[in-house]
Amino acid sequence: MTESTTGAIRLVAEREIRTFLRAKGFWIGLGVIIVGLFAISVLPSLFGGEATKVAVVGVAAQAVPDTMDAVEAGSVEAAEELVRSEEVEAAVVPDGGGLRVIALTNPPTDVLGALTTAPPVDLLEPAEIGSGQRQLVVTVFGVVFLMFGMGGMAIAQSTVTEKQTRVVEILVSAVPVRALLAGKVVGHTLLTLGQVVVLAVLTPVALKIGGQDELLTLIAPALGWYVPFLVLGFLLLSSLWAVAGSLVSRQEDLGSTTGAIVTLVMVPYFLVTFFNENPAVMTLLSFVPFSAGVAMPVRMFTGEAAVWEAVLSLGVVAVTAVACLALANRLYAGALLQTGGKMGLKAAWSNPD
């Protein structure tokens, strides 16, 4: 890369950064992310579901409040089987003159809090990390990645605006098309890094206010992996957003080219959210470039993945990002100066830049 090209990339990147730092939408978006971070940390109860199902044996049923879904079991052994099969969250069984609670991996705080007395708890498969902590980390990692991934839409909108106002013709007369693409990607990646730094500073504050101080110690190693995954994931998606913007000439047509990218952002997020307790699915998602940014850091947090797996996964995302940038470079150059409607990928690929 020549010095002039490097300088052109820097100029475009600086222009993108200045433009978005002056935009109200950028600060509103960052504010929403920060508010969401504090809300997730402080209000974990918002993620609660339906009534807790509890297995009961004999007279233990009298101690379970009506707000819980009590499932009758014929014996303590039968109640344990219901817990092991995860048909119920816990079992409340007689224990001499009192009660005993049986759970699978973690003490069921909601069950214990609902009982009039605090009985001893037997854990069948004790876990180092509580299910509540796991869900909190999955939610935070997933939501942040989703918001940054969708934030790449700004690159597509910026590209379309430049085409629609014919500003792009002035820009390409001053800098090469490839430098224009690279500058946009670099500029928005730096903006993303800046927002990550802000979140890194505020996260301990949010966890402390939410009474999750100990979680920070547990999550710190996973954060070390999450940041590079987040940046590389954004780099991967940003090139695709830029191509989506270059294929159309009006903002109204942008939805026709961004649908596939929105799917690539949304589907992995929902898969990780719904299957985060399924080791086989999470292992698979850890090596799919578009979902690895959330799945692998979560597995590192829970101790389910080795360091070599994280390195390999990061390499897969990096290689995919480079390949997408190379592909985007050709498509972007072929479509940027074309006006008059939506341009197909085949036409953009074949069009000489």
Score class of each variant (00 low, 15 high):
residue 287 F to N: 09
residue 287 F to V: 05
residue 287 F to I: 09
residue 288 V to L: 14
residue 288 V to R: 08
residue 288 V to F: 14
residue 289 P to S: 02
residue 289 P to M: 05
residue 290 F to D: 01
residue 290 F to G: 01
residue 290 F to P: 00
residue 291 S to H: 07
residue 291 S to Q: 05
residue 291 S to N: 02
residue 292 A to E: 03
residue 292 A to M: 09
residue 293 G to L: 00
residue 294 V to E: 06
residue 295 A to V: 02
residue 296 M to T: 04
residue 297 P to Y: 08
residue 297 P to L: 09
residue 298 V to R: 02
residue 298 V to Y: 13
residue 299 R to T: 10
residue 300 M to T: 11
residue 300 M to S: 09
residue 300 M to R: 10
residue 301 F to I: 10
residue 301 F to E: 03
residue 301 F to V: 10
residue 302 T to F: 11
residue 303 G to C: 04
residue 304 E to H: 07
residue 304 E to W: 08
residue 304 E to G: 08
residue 305 A to C: 08
residue 305 A to D: 02
residue 306 A to R: 08
residue 307 V to D: 06
residue 307 V to Y: 04
residue 307 V to L: 14
residue 307 V to K: 01
residue 308 W to E: 06
residue 308 W to K: 07
residue 308 W to N: 02
residue 309 E to K: 06
residue 309 E to W: 06
residue 309 E to D: 07
residue 310 A to I: 00
residue 310 A to K: 03
residue 311 V to D: 05
residue 311 V to F: 08
residue 311 V to N: 09
residue 312 L to E: 00
residue 312 L to F: 11
residue 312 L to T: 06
residue 312 L to C: 01
residue 313 S to Y: 02
residue 313 S to Q: 02
residue 313 S to D: 02
residue 314 L to H: 12
residue 314 L to A: 15
residue 315 G to E: 14
residue 315 G to D: 05
residue 315 G to S: 12
residue 315 G to P: 01
residue 315 G to Q: 10
residue 316 V to H: 00
residue 316 V to L: 13
residue 316 V to I: 14
residue 317 V to H: 06
residue 318 A to Y: 10
residue 318 A to L: 13
residue 319 V to T: 13
residue 320 T to I: 09
residue 320 T to G: 08
residue 320 T to E: 03
residue 320 T to Q: 06
residue 320 T to F: 11
residue 321 A to H: 10
residue 321 A to T: 12
residue 321 A to F: 12
residue 322 V to D: 00
residue 323 A to W: 12
residue 323 A to N: 07
residue 323 A to K: 07
residue 323 A to V: 15
residue 324 C to I: 14
residue 324 C to A: 15
residue 325 L to V: 14
residue 325 L to P: 02
residue 325 L to D: 08
residue 326 A to D: 03
residue 326 A to E: 05
residue 327 L to M: 13
residue 327 L to D: 09
residue 327 L to T: 13
residue 328 A to Y: 03
residue 328 A to V: 06
residue 328 A to E: 01
residue 329 N to Y: 02
residue 329 N to R: 15
residue 329 N to H: 12
residue 329 N to F: 04
residue 329 N to T: 15
residue 329 N to W: 06
residue 330 R to K: 14
residue 330 R to D: 06
residue 330 R to N: 05
residue 331 L to W: 13
residue 331 L to K: 07
residue 331 L to D: 08
residue 331 L to Y: 10
residue 331 L to I: 14
residue 332 Y to H: 14
residue 332 Y to L: 12
residue 333 A to D: 07
residue 333 A to M: 07
residue 334 G to I: 12
residue 335 A to Q: 08
residue 336 L to I: 15
residue 337 L to S: 00
residue 337 L to Y: 01
residue 337 L to Q: 07
residue 338 Q to W: 00
residue 338 Q to P: 00
residue 338 Q to M: 11
residue 338 Q to D: 02
residue 339 T to G: 00
residue 339 T to S: 09
residue 340 G to V: 11
residue 340 G to I: 13
residue 341 G to A: 10
residue 341 G to N: 10
residue 341 G to P: 07
residue 341 G to Q: 11
